[in-house]
Design a binder for these strands. Structure first.
Lengths: 140, 140
DNA sequence: CTGCGTGCAAATGGTTTGCACTACG
DNA sequence: CGTAGTGCAAACCATTTGCACGCAG
């Protein structure tokens, strides 16, 4: 999550040209909470930017993910979803609806990190851990 | 994971007919470790069952997942993978290769369950938690 | 100016669907 | 026998690709 200025800075640093499309797409992911799909993003952008191309949106999303400005969010179904929050965090998946919500919990992270510091998994080097917390929202 | 006999029993209980296709597909997922894709499964089955149809494989996989005899495994890419181990367990995702390995850790489960018993997430009822542990295998 | 990025349209590929036929119970 | 399940081929649909043009640096 960042301001326009920071985004420009980041793009420059990663050697990506600052194009209105890239800025608009990043803004869209940021604005559309709840982990939009490519289609959600296109729909939103077309309002102010009617002739953006679908192919471009996918290419831009890919390049932003590659450069760690966005993250992909896995889901059971086959459409990819995107997240502008790239620091370590978890997700609440609603079993009934398609809702995916962010879940931040430094205490939990600490607990798990500490656990894996003691109990090593042999033959495997842990880089990061994401919890996929399935359940349902009580208030819709 | 179960024997032929248990599988037949399960299918009967769920009101699913026992067809050679269903048995073969379940067996294949069980035999092919490392969370096969539908294509892996088809390939394997065609050896002994040359005229099975792709559509059937997908339908059978869906019905087995619906009836909790198999589980879907999410992955970053857009191909779905399947798992015959349906009890609560976690996955080690290799960042470099496509390898996905099972990770069972009752102590960890206990720790996390205990944690969430105290710290409720407001407005959300937790059903189950899966850890997606990203990293790399030291020995290839 | 030079090449990265875009728009467009066609191609890809995993998955789904519709329908006539088959075989499980 | 009746219906759930299968095989086949066509349809779907999210995503990718190739290419000519445009614009950021």
């Amino acid at each position: 999550m960042m301001t326009d200025e920071q985004l420009r800075e980041q793009l420059k640093q990663k050697g990506l040209k600052i194009t209105p499309q890239r800025v608009a797409i990043y803004r869209a992911v940021m604005k559309l909470k709840n982990h939009p799909t490519a289609e959600n993003i296109i729909e939103h952008i077309k309002l102010n930017y009617p002739n953006i191309s679908i192919g471009t949106v996918y290419k831009v999303l890919d390049s932003l993910v590659e450069n760690q400005l966005l993250k992909k969010v896995k889901n059971e179904k086959d459409v990819m979803r995107y997240d502008a929050i790239i620091h370590q965090h978890h997700h609440l998946y609603c079993i009934e609806t398609e809702r995916i919500e962010d879940y931040d919990d430094p205490d939990l992270d600490k607990l798990i990190t500490k656990y894996f510091k003691q109990k090593k998994i042999k033959g495997f080097k842990v880089k990061d851990i994401t919890l996929q917390i399935n359940g349902e929202f009580k208030i819709k």
